[in-house]
C-alpha cells in the first residue's frame, strides 16, 4: 500500500493493461514519483516500459488500476484529459515534429491553439526555449532540414513551451545517430538540474547512472526493481536484473 504523499506528483496504483488481442502488457504496476524527481525506467524491449510511460498521459488507456497526476485522478468522471495533458509534456522516440511547420512554429502551435496565450508572449517564450536547446540559428528551418538530434531538441522545446509540470521521455535517443545522442542528453540533463519532474524510458545507462534519482526495472509487464542508481547498478539483488545488467553493461 502506497502512502499518499502530497509531494507525489504521479501516483500509479495497480495499473493493468490488457490489449484486445489478449496481450498482457502491464501487470499491477504501482509507482509514485515525487515532484522534481528524475525517474529512469529501463528493461528489455517488450517489457512494457514504454506502455507504462504512455499510460501516464493516456496515450494508452488502462484496463484497471488508477493513475493520479498532480492530485487529479486521470480516470475521474470530471477529468478533462486534454487539460491534464497540457501539463504533461511528452518527447517521442521518432520526434513527431509537425513537418508542415517551421521549428519555431512547431514550438508555438500548442500554446497558441490550446492555451490561447498571447502571440507575442508565446513567440518570446518559444525563441527563448529554442535558444536554450541550442537552436537559435535554426528556428525558421523546417523539420526535414534538421538533423535527428536537432529535431529531438525542437521536440523538447515544443513540449516545454506548454510549461509542463512533468516531462515524459519515450526512448528519446534510440532513433538517433550515435554522435547526436550527447546533444539531446545534455538538454535533458540541464532540464533535470532545473528541477523538472522527469520520467525517462531509455537504454542510456550512463544517463540513468548520472542523472536519475531512482531507476525502475521492468520486465514482462511487471515492475521488478525500484532503487537508487547507485544500488541499482553496483549492487543489484534481483537475479533478473543481474542478468540484464551483465548483458548491457
Amino acid at each position: 500500500m502506497h502512502l499518499q504523499n502530497a509531494e507525489d506528483i504521479i501516483i500509479a496504483k495497480d495499473v493493468d493493461k490488457i490489449y484486445p488481442n489478449g496481450c498482457h502488457a502491464l501487470k499491477k504496476v504501482s509507482a509514485s514519483i515525487k515532484k522534481g524527481e528524475v525517474v529512469v525506467i529501463i528493461g528489455p524491449s517488450g517489457s512494457g516500459k514504454s506502455t507504462f510511460l504512455r499510460t501516464l498521459n493516456q496515450l494508452e488507456t488502462i484496463s484497471s488500476g488508477s493513475i493520479v497526476i498532480d492530485q487529479v485522478d486521470m480516470y475521474g468522471k470530471n477529468t478533462n484529459i486534454n487539460k491534464l495533458r497540457e501539463h504533461v509534456g511528452m518527447v517521442f522516440q521518432s520526434f513527431n515534429l509537425f513537418p508542415h511547420k517551421s521549428a519555431l512554429h512547431n514550438v508555438m502551435m500548442a500554446p497558441l491553439k490550446v492555451s490561447k496565450r498571447a502571440k507575442s508572449e508565446v513567440e518570446e517564450h518559444a525563441r527563448a526555449l529554442m535558444k536554450k536547446v541550442g537552436l537559435a540559428e535554426r528556428m525558421n528551418n523546417y523539420p526535414s532540414q534538421l538533423s535527428g538530434g536537432q529535431q529531438q531538441r525542437v521536440a523538447i522545446a515544443r513540449a516545454l513551451c506548454m510549461k509542463p509540470k512533468i516531462m515524459l521521455f519515450d526512448e528519446p535517443t534510440s532513433a538517433l545517430d550515435p554522435e547526436m545522442v550527447g546533444e539531446v542528453l545534455d538538454v535533458m540533463k540541464s532540464l533535470a538540474k532545473e528541477g523538472m519532474t522527469m520520467v525517462v524510458v531509455t537504454h542510456e545507462m550512463g544517463f540513468a547512472r548520472e542523472v536519475a534519482d531512482r531507476v525502475l526495472f521492468m520486465e514482462d509487464g511487471e515492475l521488478l526493481v525500484e532503487d537508487t542508481p547507485d544500488k541499482f547498478f553496483h549492487n543489484p539483488t534481483h537475479p533478473r536484473l543481474q542478468r540484464f545488467l551483465s548483458q548491457v553493461l
Binding site: L59, N82, N96, F98, M109, A110, K113, A159
Partner: peptide
C-alpha cells in the same frame, strides 16, 4: 503517421484541434 496525432494530443490538443492544425494540412 499515427505519431503526428499522438504528438498533437500529448500537447493537450483536442481531436478536432489536432485534425485541423496537424493532420489535415499534411
Amino acid at each position: 503517421p499515427p505519431g503526428q496525432m499522438e504528438a498533437a494530443r500529448s500537447l493537450g490538443m483536442t481531436y478536432v484541434q489536432a485534425m485541423v492544425n496537424v493532420i489535415l494540412p499534411q
